[in-house]
Design a protein around this nucleic acid. Structure first.
Lengths: 142, 142
DNA sequence: CTAAATGCAAAAAGTTTGCAAACGT
DNA sequence: ACGTTTGCAAACTTTTTGCATTTAG
């Protein structure tokens, strides 16, 4: 799906959710969808606040939480640092640099069979799974 | 490996690391190795502090960080709640209840091939990976 | 003995909350 | 107009830090 289409689709979904499309909310959404860097709430805040004098970081958190709750974004948590957010909710995995915390998408066939096996052996009703690969990126190795 | 053997082994490793085996440190280690509940730092603190009047939670954190840094424990982070700690450093995965945050071990052949593929496609030097499956446990479904 | 670990309290960092004001629909 | 969202500041939670004191080896 093309980038602008993703935003369009997200905005349509928002409208169906009985929420208001405030300029701040659209800006957060837009930035998240356009970024491949898996930004923190603060990254997003810094990227958009110049367009909204007096804007609050809490607004970014509000919106990110809202987006995650409604399946339009994913929250990624590593170690005890800030959460990172991902506007790409399609199946994919992440590789994370242990040194600089860069996160890069990594595409691999979905491991759905594991979910089935986990259901059988653990008596959970599975909803989804997450896979993170850790290592050191090229920049940090040099 | 039998439970007591694991503690024995861990203590030997500690001795080789030039650290002191304070009673608090041994208690934290022991509790972590004996628990299958993936406790938080505070869980561990509450479990052992009655044996050490005036003991500090910071001591638990100190020790957990030390253990993780030296490969004797793993830190698990989910959402924005307290980290959970796992004394089992052998290859295994986790299934997590989205409702009550219970974590249950889930054994599955290690996905080493994914690491190799990730190295090729992303130009990272891979160290390890982690997989979490999310769902709802039986207790929470009833 | 002596360097490392502890307890304590305060700081740091990240995120959430309560409320009055502002604003989309 | 209405109810949602915002900005703000304060609260809250988790984890770390600095320092004086204790202690394991």
């Amino acid at each position: 799906m093309h980038k602008s289409k993703v935003l369009e689709y997200a905005i349509v979904r928002m409208k169906h959710l009985n929420v208001r499309l405030t300029p701040q909310r659209v800006a957060v959404l837009e930035h998240l969808l356009n970024s491949k860097l898996h930004p923190t709430a603060n990254n997003i805040y810094q990227a958009v606040e110049h367009r909204f004098p007096g804007m609050s970081l809490a607004t970014v958190y509000n919106n990110l939480n809202f987006l995650c709750k409604n399946g339009l974004a994913r929250e990624l948590t590593f170690s005890n640092a800030s959460s990172r957010y991902d506007g790409d909710t399609t199946d994919h995995y992440h590789i994370i640099c242990s040194n600089c915390s860069k996160i890069v998408d990594f595409y691999y066939p979905s491991l759905k069979e594991i979910e089935a096996l986990a259901e059988q052996t653990t008596d959970f009703k599975v909803s989804h799974h997450q896979l993170e690969i850790y290592g050191t990126c090229k920049t940090c190795r040099d």
